[in-house]
Design a protein around this nucleic acid. Sequence first.
RNA 1: GCCUGGAUGGUGAAAUUGGUAGACACAAGGGACUUAAAAUCCCUCGGGCUUAACGCCCAUGCGGGUUCGAUUCCCGCUCCAGGCACCA
Length: 898
Amino acid sequence: MQRGSPASAGYNQFFHRDFQNNSVIPPMQEKYHPNQIEQATQQYWEESAAFRVTEDAARPKYYCLSMLPYPSGKLHMGHVRNYTIGDALSRHHRMRGFNVLQPMGWDAFGLPAENAAMANNVPPAKWTYDNIAYMKQQLTSLGFALDWKREVATCTPQYYKWNQWLFLRMLEKGIAYLKTGAVNWDPVDQTVLANEQVIDGRGWRTGALIEKREIPMYYLKITDYADELLEALDTLPGWPERVKTMQANWIGRSQGVRFAFPYVLDGKEDKLWVFTTRADTIMGVTFCAVAAEHPLAAHAARNNPKLAEFIEECKHGSVMEADMATMEKKGMPTGIFVDHPLNGEKIEVWVGNYVLMGYGEGAVMAVPAHDERDFEFAQKYGLPIKPVIALPGLSYSLGAWQAWYADKERGVCINSGKYDGLAYPAAIDAIVADLKAKGLGELRTTYRLRDWGISRQRYWGCPIPIIHCKTCGAVPVPDDQLPVVLPEDCVPDGSGNPLRKRADFVDCACPKCGQPAQRETDTMDTFVDSSWYYARYCCADNASAMVDARTDYWMPVDQYIGGIEHAILHLLYSRFWTRVMRDMGLVKYDEPFARLLTQGMVLNEIFFRKPNVDKGGGRIVYYNPTEVEHRLDDKGNRVPGGAVLKADGQPVESGGIGTMSKSKNNGVDPQALVDRYGADTARFFMMFAAPPEQTLEWSDAGVEGSYRFLKRLWAFGHSVQEAVRSAKAIPAKLDGVLANVRREIHLNLKQADYDIGKHQFNTVASAAMKILNALEKAPRQGDGHAAVIAEGMSILLRLLAPITPHVCHALWRELGYGDDILRAAWPAPLAAALAQDEIELVLQINGKLRGNLRLPADATQQAIQAAALASDSAQKYLEGKAAKKVVVVPGRLVNIVC
RNA sequence: GCCUGGAUGGUGAAAUUGGUAGACACAAGGGACUUAAAAUCCCUCGGGCUUAACGCCCAUGCGGGUUCGAUUCCCGCUCCAGGCACCA
């Protein structure tokens, strides 16, 4: 590492290096040969173990982490974008003196491996490991500064052993527990499907109508941490506001009232509990709705075949929230009545397809006058609507829903007996007091957040370490028998979890009583794997503990980089898991990711063909955009619906544009780009295309420009090699043209520093291009010209090194700056180079641009005003009138208002 | 449906967060070099009006508003993207 602190490290230090010791300089290639340069550079990094890091208390650490990829087969442009951002940040911090850790691993369990297994009759394990080998080579060829000694693959027993171990600890503490949950059941394949595998309510392979099934699953009590997860968002200034907003809304803490409708059924007294945030409208309840699985619904259905049929129909519905929210709301009366807790009125209970058993109480109160969904439901079924909130000057109408019906800010209770005239807070207080007195309700905080169900009825995942014994029940696997190893030779066939057929896996002895017993065959959600891998990188070689003291050095992650699609689930689960580990004394931090950069998605077109459901279904087939061609009209524009598959000339449907993914087959393999132009061009182009956080529709138009730039950079380096190698220090007094060139370079460096602070690498790339433009135009003679070029080139190479490390490494050596640009210090703009005597101000008249003013840099407000008023433009537009007002923005403009 | 973002030339984008809209590039057109091609270099390049030249008007998805001044702030829309708990 360089001497001195990052801030003081001057770029002029290269003049003190061994410039004279250049007796043996191999001739520099005249042309840019990226493949040779990149191979040689990568070999140098490999041999010098350039990116191996260890803990070093003497230096500030910088843990730079990109989200680990799912090994789907090949990298796609989203990966290149993600990892280039991370690599640029890593290399930049390294040049600024930080001890940088940048690891990589594989989110290696998951559904695509099972699908590939079915398609190709290959075990998921083999498919996964092959993909890892190929993608690792791709990452290496892109030149990412990764410490591969810390590599982690979540499908290895060495890794997932600790999932199992911590799960057992959670079970002991009651954080993990068993409860039923709804899954998608394909009755033909007799298997549970992921949401993604259900298309328009049908199984993707069988076309069969999917049923909801309630099965026992393990859940993690993330809701116990809801308050902390919400409140700690304020401790994360390095996170994007939008991510914090999304998480806060997801947790959805709300104050409300849990209360009950008493009833008598078959001579037995009971209560129907519901929750509401609008207790001020309780007097407007005209019916209640319960889920199809609710005991009251089941009771009513016993001698009501039509209701039983409706309940059956509800069970065919989707488990997905988006479907629940958009589907047609249907219901049917049960004939059961409950008592209104405040006025004793009889309230009928309905079964509603929009009420979910798993959430809250599985029952809701309905106030059609003040809830839009209830309003529509009541209109549809002719149920009474009783307004109990009024706004002055507005009259309630049953014709159509008005936004003010739900206004709780300005509304006042009416038709509510003793509560009439009360506003929202007072009404709630009074109503809660009365409910409480009757023992029928109380204030309660609730959360939208639900506990995390982790059981998956799938093979390719981490086995849940439980043994089922006829006498002892569900028995945890003892620690000394961990890990429960997943057999790696299964090939799923789509008809359920193949583990169930593996006697050598399932059959075992009960750890408690020793009797024959069966192993749990459910595996864990893959979000478990990715909830703590960042901690494991710090100590990936430790076989005897989940984490060790090295995590105390590296954690928390200083900069986490990943797609915005993970804004909620992965990041929230990781924050939860971290807290569980903290509360068990395993780690010492609250938050795993100090700063977060959410990369915008890289999108591409989606094309597919749907199977004909009438002919028995079958799965949707997606076609890569490269397999599709388009009919064009006279003007060369695409004809809508004119997409056809090249292979057979038959039409394909357009699925719009969406994230590059394996499942939509719309990924673009960067390999062609790397083969043709080299990794540096691919990296530069990806950074130049758009700012990191912005969504990016993929197009390789423009990649030529990035390649051209690197060719020009090399050619320029070649042409100034001698001048740079023999350059002296910059003279105290530069002539005007050279001073301007130098100023331009330092100005762009200053701008680039600012932009790097914002992670805006596209304008950093622009600044590099502007610097090269300036250098190319610089005079090649005159006192100090070589020194200015040598300094400028050293700035340019170091500025670019994080983005295009190979070509910068090679040029750094060829031009004699030093052996290894990795050890060079980050450049700093110099005030002396930036100084100027005169500045240009914009002259506006009434806010419109009317000219420019050149003034001394130190001109006073008064002098600027006087100069502005005296200018020709001002005289022309003022026409002798006096200015009403003159606005001076220092360093920028003068606006004369007249 | 709900939550969160986004929309600027033919295209990707920039505008130091209220101060010259379109930097830097791509594509296109014209030219130079070349036997030719590639590569490279130079010029033009938002729309309109006008001029010999200077210049003027319009323009940042749509409609309003605040301001000396709005791509930027506020209100109301449209479309697109991400998420919605079993894709990862």
